[in-house]
Simulated assay, not measured.
Amino acid sequence: MSDSTATLQRKISNAGELEAVVRTMKALAASSISQYERAVNSLDEYYRTVQLGLLACLRQGAPMSSNVHKHTVATGVIIFGSDQGLVGQFNDELADFAAHVLRDLPGNKVVWAVGERVQLRLEQIGLTPDSLFGVPTAIHAVTPLIGRILAEIGRYSEQGRVEQVYIFHNRPKSGALYEPVSQRLLPLDATWQHELLAQQWPTQNLPEIIGESALTLAAFIREYLFVSLFRSCVESLASENASRLAAMQRAEKNIEEMLVDLRLSYHRLRQSGIDAELFDVVSGFELLISNKKK
């Protein structure tokens, strides 16, 4: 009986320690979500500003340089996943979504994975990454990562090995945790220009480019590529922490239910032991009284 209660006490103690760890991870995830959500909101406004700058340049007739090759060797694919676990189906759903979209695109694929977890899932479904990047652990670490990715894209593009580039990531969604989305980053071809020119200027005051329009357009294009990747990365980080928060909430609930069961079992076992000891005392007392009467 003592061994059983001791075992239950150890299980209760271990479950309590695990609950404390889960609560800590839950608090960290909630704290991270807030900073990434603020960054996403700020980037939405900045992204819109960059788009308006590009629109102004194109309407003023700034020349667009074209690096389109006659034969596309491969399609570049950037997939933002996670390095850490405890995120539910975060990486699986994203990898499956990317595989479904890429199935309709012709040619070979050059895959750049951001996160070891999504890399493993991509390998399982036949999309072995050519390069792996680590997931930023804070907002200030996003900029160096985007710089490395842009350098990799530039190297492949200059060599004529990649013409078009797609981004895949999870985006926060109201009413749900997240949803996998895709965006064509390159090329900035006639289709992209037509979609941009279809937008309306927000005011009646039309803009005017001061200085060399080609240089201004090139600067806006660099900023467009940077902010597109930056926003995708931050949205992925916000989604990852939202998924981890939900997983920690489920784990916390399961641990609480397990602790209730363990404590009930411990109290029942302890009470049964006390009852047995009392029964032995009463039986012994009655036996002594019976012997005295005899």
Results as ranks from 00 to 15, higher is better:
residue 215 L to T: 06
residue 237 L to C: 14
residue 222 R to T: 13
residue 16 G to R: 02
residue 91 N to E: 07
residue 154 G to R: 13
residue 36 Y to N: 09
residue 41 N to H: 10
residue 177 L to C: 02
residue 93 E to L: 15
residue 216 T to A: 12
residue 229 L to P: 12
residue 59 R to F: 06
residue 168 F to Q: 09
residue 33 I to F: 03
residue 149 I to Q: 07
residue 150 L to W: 06
residue 53 G to L: 13
residue 106 P to T: 01
residue 108 N to Q: 10
residue 226 F to A: 04
residue 286 E to M: 12
residue 60 Q to F: 02
residue 152 E to T: 06
residue 210 I to K: 12
residue 281 V to A: 15
residue 177 L to E: 11
residue 126 G to I: 04
residue 193 Q to A: 15
residue 249 Q to Y: 03
residue 244 R to P: 00
residue 266 Y to Q: 12
residue 1 M to C: 00
residue 192 W to S: 06
residue 16 G to Q: 05
residue 170 N to T: 08
residue 104 D to V: 04
residue 241 N to D: 05
residue 220 F to C: 13
residue 222 R to K: 11
residue 216 T to N: 15
residue 223 E to L: 15
residue 121 R to V: 08
residue 285 F to P: 02
residue 25 M to K: 02
residue 276 A to H: 04
residue 244 R to N: 01
residue 175 G to M: 13
residue 294 K to E: 09
residue 239 S to L: 04
residue 202 P to T: 05
residue 201 W to M: 07
residue 234 V to C: 15
residue 212 E to A: 04
residue 229 L to N: 09
residue 250 R to A: 11
residue 187 P to D: 05
residue 219 A to S: 14
residue 41 N to W: 03
residue 273 G to D: 07
residue 200 Q to H: 13
residue 266 Y to N: 05
residue 288 L to G: 06
residue 60 Q to Y: 03
residue 176 A to D: 11
residue 106 P to N: 02
residue 155 R to M: 11
residue 17 E to L: 03
residue 24 T to M: 00
residue 127 L to W: 06
residue 203 T to H: 12
residue 155 R to A: 14
residue 248 M to N: 03
residue 208 E to H: 03
residue 239 S to N: 01
residue 90 F to I: 07
residue 99 A to Y: 11
residue 232 S to P: 05
residue 225 L to Q: 11
residue 9 Q to S: 04
residue 128 T to V: 08
residue 182 S to M: 15
residue 21 V to C: 00
residue 136 P to M: 10
residue 255 I to L: 08
residue 15 A to Q: 01
residue 261 D to Q: 00
residue 54 L to S: 10
residue 218 A to H: 05
residue 122 L to Q: 04
residue 74 A to M: 09
residue 278 L to W: 09
residue 111 V to D: 10
residue 263 R to E: 09
residue 20 A to H: 00
residue 9 Q to M: 07
residue 212 E to T: 02
residue 103 R to L: 12
residue 111 V to L: 07
residue 154 G to A: 14
residue 147 G to N: 15
residue 140 H to I: 10
residue 134 G to D: 13
residue 134 G to R: 10
residue 85 G to N: 07
residue 59 R to C: 09
residue 23 R to E: 01
residue 130 D to N: 05
residue 23 R to I: 00
residue 173 K to D: 08
residue 209 I to K: 01
residue 32 S to H: 03
residue 144 P to V: 09
residue 225 L to I: 04
residue 134 G to S: 13
residue 75 T to M: 08
residue 40 V to L: 05
residue 20 A to I: 01
residue 279 F to K: 14
residue 215 L to Q: 08
residue 215 L to N: 03
residue 23 R to G: 00
residue 260 V to K: 09
residue 251 A to S: 08
residue 47 Y to Q: 11
residue 33 I to G: 01
residue 10 R to Y: 00
residue 185 L to Q: 11
residue 121 R to A: 07
residue 254 N to V: 00
residue 275 D to Q: 12
residue 246 A to P: 06
residue 51 Q to G: 15
residue 166 Y to I: 02
residue 276 A to I: 03
residue 103 R to Y: 13
residue 222 R to S: 14
residue 30 A to F: 00
residue 163 E to A: 01
residue 127 L to I: 10
residue 224 Y to M: 05
residue 207 P to A: 12
residue 280 D to I: 04
residue 183 Q to L: 12
residue 274 I to L: 14
residue 224 Y to F: 15
residue 93 E to C: 07
residue 273 G to R: 11
residue 13 S to L: 02
residue 43 L to I: 04
residue 267 H to V: 01
residue 169 H to Q: 12
residue 272 S to H: 05
residue 98 A to F: 09
residue 94 L to D: 10
residue 247 A to S: 09
residue 141 A to V: 10
residue 280 D to F: 05
